[in-house]
Amino acid sequence: MSLDADAVKKIAYLARLKIDEADVPGYVNNLSNIIDLVEQMSAVDTEGVLPMSHPMDAVQRLREDKVTETNQREIFQAIAPKTEDGLYLVPQVIE
């Protein structure tokens, strides 16, 4: 097992995913197997190989600095779980 239960819980927390205690062993097993699969990469020497984060060697296009959007709050908030006075509401954030 390349991952243990604590590691899985830590990852789930970082990703903000609630995992039932009963499901943890299943995730430990599956994720460990996937990590083992991924580990095959280490067999190949990549010294000096440039990382490729994009399939195409293209550069970023630039947008003109123009306001093209109008207020659509009503439309967007019609599908929101909880709003009031135009604000999205979430449980109290404590800073």
Binding site: R63, T68, E69, N71, R73, F76, D85, G86, L87
Partner: peptide, 24 residues
Amino acid sequence: ATKSKIFSGSSTAYGAEPNTQANA
């Protein structure tokens, strides 16, 4: 000091009603 946002065409003007300058 741009007119629109860094990655969208929403206005950056200050003081608008909440979420009226927040597009998709």
